[in-house]
Nucleic acid binder design. Structure first.
Lengths: 158, 158
DNA sequence: CCTAATTAAGTTGGATACAATATAACTGAA
DNA sequence: TTCAGTTATATTGTATCCAACTTAATTAGG
């Protein structure tokens, strides 16, 4: 091969790409049991934490586009987990709120993180907690660096 | 909040999810310039490395389903990057090969990894290489652990 | 030799993602 | 006051993803 930087096995990014899908595969059976997809699940995580939020706040918190969020919320509403109401003070803004059914789902979701953790951690549990923490920090750093690069890129285009 | 394990900010998985999409956003303008999406790009990476491969080999190498791969290859064929031929020795198997146009695209792709690296690394370049290596290893470990868990899960179901 | 099981790709259907566009509501400057 | 610009959300179009199913070809057991 003429270009070692083009080898799949050398690529950090392919690891992220593959890992993300493998993670989703780990979540899928657990979340299917709750009647959720992963993006619906993190939307519910936000709502369990904040009780309510506008579409814009959800988009910002989950780094998702309205083109993803709007139909997703429509499906969550159809399945009875949330309600949507336009604010009387500003009819453009849509407030998303948990229904009783949506609130109750939290109980069934409590075991999900532990189950996922057991898929992520090796049988040898020693040192795992610390590695977990180090990995978290590296991901945060990488993510903020990527966002910084994107901002600079988008500034440059204007 | 009653359940700290359900806080978005505590979740390792949400970091992976967000990071993967931020990475794709970094690739998008570069790859659009080549007329590729990310999954088409890694398909080309495989082919630049191996010159050819069956649909099954590509699915295995990229951890993708035929339901993703078949239409993707159809689009790469339409855009003139690859050709597909069924093997005379086994008419079920489809061999994917680079066209001349597909081969030539490699030259234009050479700069992509460096560009992405510059988005990933902070301005302070000291120690970055080592951290990069540590991160790679942690991702590999995590990925193989996830695959192991999935195998055990699928074994258990049979 | 023949059919049942297996294998390799392709297709279909549902749900993301995101760019680009549309729509409706709000804001502000002349 | 009015309308040009902005803002918040929704919609449309293209491309993934994956589960489930289909089709065609090969293999293997009787």
């Amino acid at each position: 091969m003429a270009y070692p930087q083009l080898l799949l096995s050398n690529q950090l990014c392919f690891r992220f790409y593959a890992l993300e899908r493998e993670l989703m595969a780990a979540y899928r059976p657990l979340l299917t049991h709750l009647g959720l997809t992963y993006s619906q699940y993190i939307t519910m995580l936000y709502l369990w934490e904040h009780e309510e939020g506008t579409v814009g706040e959800l988009c910002t918190a989950l780094s998702l586009d309205t083109g993803t969020m709007s139909p997703l919320l429509k499906r969550l509403e159809t399945s009875g987990m949330i309600e949507r109401h336009r604010l009387p003070s500003d009819e453009r803004t849509v407030m998303v709120q948990l229904t009783e059914k949506g609130r109750e789902l939290e109980q069934k979701a409590v075991s999900v993180p532990d189950h996922i953790a057991s898929c992520l951690l090796s049988d040898d549990k020693s040192e795992q907690g610390r590695r977990y923490q180090v990995l978290k920090e590296m991901l945060d750093e990488t993510l903020s660096q990527l966002k910084k690069s994107r901002n600079e890129r988008e500034q440059g285009r204007q």
